[in-house]
Design a protein around this nucleic acid. Structure first.
Length: 296
DNA sequence: CTCCAGGGAGCCT
DNA sequence: AGGCTCCATGGA
């Protein structure tokens, strides 16, 4: 076992691991303790989180001055990448529009960062997210891991990685339905088949300009514009991607009604411009959480 | 009981 | 391109 700590003073801008991992833009981490997911802030923000990424088990928690970690490897560079710790959050916030809703949203969750999830897990988890509450999406990914994931030993325990594309491609639709994926079951199976066969992979997406990348991503089954935007934003680092979900549509109706031009591509361009382009996805994610936390 | 959740596919015009 | 309808599941 290796252990270490990332000093917060080495990270540009504030950090909040809890809101980064529990707000529902990554579904690939889980609580390492017995405490269940709950309202943000309910546990003092010092909980241990665990994931298996690139075959390595990583556990991390935030303390007053550092992010402590335990892992099967030197997790420092991997953690910085996965948690978006390279993003200069102060600079990003500076680019946000200075209106009341965005300001309030940034004040509500200082330190929340955009994750960089491994591609396939991000893709499948957001296919599963269609018409599904945030809390339940975690459970679906947990069942996929435990039924189809490769075991990894760590600290005398066995944990399961997110399934490889071949493993989910070999699953039957009925099996996936039995694991409560509902009508998303064939989407996940067929998308896994596309990736496993090499017919459509991350290499067909990464590196292209934003709108071309989004179009390419909708080639997966169960992936429309919205899920494609989530994958570009939460896995591939397209920080300008603005997923137009029910919550951000409410925000558009309320605060930026002129941006709704009646179709996804046009509304996407308008709200992206309204949120000042380059980091529009960051600002959207803050708005999403602000709205979700203040309307329930 | 009904309504709805970080939507998308298939089919129609 | 744009507008239906259907699709599972479970908590409010």
């Amino acid at each position: 076992m290796e252990t270490g700590a990332i000093q917060l003073e080495s990270v540009p801008g504030p950090v909040d691991v809890e809101s980064t991992l529990e707000s529902g833009h990554s579904y690939l981490w889980w609580r390492a303790d017995d405490r269940t997911y709950d309202r943000l802030g309910a546990h003092g923000g010092d909980a241990w989180y665990r994931t298996v990424a690139h075959g390595e088990v990583i556990e991390a928690r935030q303390t007053e001055r550092a992010i402590e970690w335990r892992s099967t490897t030197d997790a420092d560079p991997l953690l910085r990448e996965l948690l978006g710790l390279h993003d200069d959050l102060d600079e990003i916030r500076e680019t946000a529009p200075k209106d009341a809703p965005v300001r309030a949203a940034y004040d509500a969750y200082p330190g929340m960062r955009i994750v960089r999830d491994p591609f396939f897990g991000c893709l499948v988890s957001f296919i599963c997210s269609a018409q599904m509450r945030v809390e339940r999406i975690f459970g679906m990914q947990e069942r996929l891991r435990e039924h189809y994931g490769e075991p990894v030993e760590f600290d005398d325990e066995t944990y399961y990685a997110f399934p490889e594309p071949t493993a989910l491609a070999a699953a039957t639709e009925q099996e996936l339905r039995d694991h409560k994926l509902g009508y998303r079951a064939p989407y996940v199976q067929q998308t896994a088949e596309l990736v496993a066969s090499g017919d459509l992979t991350v290499d067909d997406i990464r590196g292209q300009d934003y709108e071309s990348a989004r179009d390419a991503c909708t080639g997966f089954v169960g992936v429309g514009d919205k899920v494609a935007d989530c994958v570009l934003l939460f896995s591939l680092g397209y920080l300008e991607a603005v997923p137009l979900d029910t919550w951000i549509r409410t925000a558009i109706d309320r605060y930026y009604p002129e941006c709704d031009v009646g179709n996804y591509a046009g509304t996407s361009r308008a709200i992206r411009q309204r949120l000042n382009g380059e980091y529009a996805g960051y600002h959207q994610t803050y708005l999403f959480h602000y709205l979700r936390s203040t309307t329930e």
